[in-house]
């Protein structure tokens, strides 16, 4: 099914509203929508809601595989983002759209290339057996800013995930079930989080966390991935607009504030979940 076209009147209205520093849902220019993080019953399952409409689910799983030949002592990380039709009727199933490729690439750059996960700790037997950690991100509802929601969901799911404990005796590898030995968390060095900025009127106006309709009117997008130590992990600009140095610097400053807030939120959510699980175990 085709996407609902954007009418001229919506476009006009959005642009005048942005000029007057107003947004459709009453947010300020630099405001995020309300972020809600919930966990599934399994370890490594995380759902992130942005406002009432955007919703993303991330699920982490792992299995023992042979390592890559050139990196015999490193575990493998695999990311896969999917845009199902459920999210928006405009997404076509089983087609590699430009948006899908862009999102997948950005997620990989944000989480794998930033080396936030210790891949060497995922090695079981050098050159023979390593853990392959797979992160599946499903977009359940699309109302703009899939990137930020997926990056939050993916990193939270990775923090939440526990892999089965293993024991190596000589050549023999034993994998323990959760009943035998408590599963162990992954070692995560830092938490990179993407923050999207959309630009209007050739970069004159800037909005944080654009919703779907704003994304359709925008001229360009800048995605900055950063951790709470203010280390930049990736910067991606799309839409082909020229940005000034000051603008990028200003964006990075805003990003650092937002990332600190989001990291706080994630830690709180993880803590709450831990407590809930602890109580549940003793019941």
């Amino acid at each position: 099914m085709r996407e609902t076209p954007l009418s001229n009147c919506e476009r006009q209205f959005l642009l005048t509203a942005i000029k007057e520093k107003k947004r459709l849902d009453g947010r300020q220019t630099y405001d995020y929508r309300n972020i809600k993080i919930t966990f599934g019953t399994q370890y490594g399952c995380c759902i992130v809601d942005l406002g009432k409409t955007s919703r993303v689910l991330a699920q982490v799983s792992c299995e023992l595989v042979a390592p890559k030949e050139n990196r015999p002592t490193e575990g493998i990380l695999f990311f896969n983002l999917e845009l199902s039709q459920m999210a928006s009727p405009a997404f076509e199933p089983s087609r590699q759209s430009e948006l899908l490729v862009k999102l997948n690439r950005q997620l990989e750059r944000c989480l794998r290339n930033s080396k936030c996960i210790d891949t060497e700790s995922l090695c079981v037997v050098s050159g023979a057996k390593v853990w392959q950690v797979r992160v599946d991100v499903h977009v359940l509802n699309h109302d703009g800013n899939i990137m930020d929601a997926s990056s939050i969901a993916a990193i939270t799911a990775l923090c939440h995930f526990r892999r089965p404990d293993v024991c190596v005796q000589g050549e023999e590898v034993t994998v323990f079930t959760p009943e035998e030995r408590d599963p162990v968390p992954l070692s995560i060095y830092h938490m990179p989080i993407c923050v999207s900025f959309s630009f209007f009127e050739q970069g004159t106006y800037l909005l944080v966390d654009p919703c779907e309709r704003e994304e359709r009117v925008m001229d360009g997008l800048l995605v900055i991935a950063m951790n709470k130590h203010r280390e930049m992990c990736s910067v991606q600009s799309s839409g082909g607009i020229m940005l000034l140095k000051e603008q990028v610097l200003r964006c990075s400053k805003i990003a650092s504030v937002k990332v600190a807030e989001v990291t706080e939120l994630i830690n709180k959510a993880l803590e709450n979940d831990k407590k809930a699980r602890y109580v549940f175990e003793f019941l």
């Binding site: 009418s7 001229n8 009147c9 919506e10 006009q12 209205f13 005048t16």
Partner: peptide, 17 residues
């Protein structure tokens, strides 16, 4: 049916949908 616009037609300069 009588060929009148009767409120119908192109509209919407400004305003929000």
């Amino acid at each position: 049916s009588s060929g009148r616009a009767n409120g119908m037609g192109v509209f919407g300069t400004g305003g929000l949908l």
